[in-house]
């Protein structure tokens, strides 16, 4: 059966080989990522097993010893621990423990346009939903967020003053419209007390 496994949201046809690692540069990064993920998962699973062990056995309630609250989390912690160890061992065998982090690699990651767009998106979205909403009126926070998002991502070097004004106008209209429609819909139609 010719499956195209793991076709993700990027839609690119995935590679047809089945073993987890090949020799491409992208895979080399994945091997390193797996090594780090495996370590994090080992720590997480140990924490879960430890916490499950600490959970009460409820002997004073005379409950059945196999119905204690920590049983299933401990079971899951052990399974994740085993899977994470396999992930780390597999990654180490493929050289994933040699992370090769240098200033040059970090600089390249920092200046890569996709990563910069991601960082700006994360700052704007988390800043809006996590901090702005609830601190200032909802309609104002939403309008400002949409306005800032559009202006920041659509402005280009060398834009004329006229183009700047046009961009600001479009962003302001879209920000105001989004804010007005969403505020009205949730407040008046769905009777939500806005944050």
């Amino acid at each position: 059966m010719t499956l195209r496994p793991g076709a993700g949201s990027d839609g690119n046809p995935p590679p047809s080989h089945l073993p987890p690692y090949d020799r491409s540069e992208k895979t080399a990064d994945m091997v390193k990522a797996d090594f780090l993920t495996g370590l994090v998962l080992i720590l997480l699973s140990l924490f879960v097993v430890f916490e499950s062990w600490r959970m009460p056995r409820l002997e004073h309630l005379k409950v059945h010893p196999l119905s204690v609250p920590g049983l299933v989390p401990a079971f899951l912690g052990i399974v994740i621990f085993v899977l994470a160890v396999i992930l780390v061992v597999r990654s180490v065998l493929a050289g994933g423990h040699r992370l090769g982090l240098s200033n040059e690699v970090l600089r390249r990651l920092r200046v890569e346009p996709g990563n910069r767009r991601l960082l700006v998106t994360a700052v704007l979205t988390i800043g809006y939903a996590g901090f702005l909403v609830g601190s200032i009126p909802y309609w104002l926070a939403t309008g400002l967020f949409v306005f800032a998002f559009i202006v920041i991502f659509e402005r280009r070097r060398g834009m004329t003053r006229r183009e700047y004004v046009r961009l600001g106008l479009v962003a302001a209209i879209l920000g105001a419209a989004t804010s007005a429609v969403v505020t009205w819909a949730f407040q008046s139609m769905f009777l939500v007390t806005l944050p």
């Binding site: 609830g134 998002f149 559009i150 949730f186």
Partner: peptide, 22 residues
């Protein structure tokens, strides 16, 4: 660049609306 901020606004308010908890 114009669609995604609107989508995120809906993500934020949609998550909040069901139980109205920040």
């Amino acid at each position: 660049t114009r669609l995604m901020p609107v989508v995120f606004v809906l993500c934020a308010i949609g998550s909040y609306a069901i139980t109205q908890r920040t």
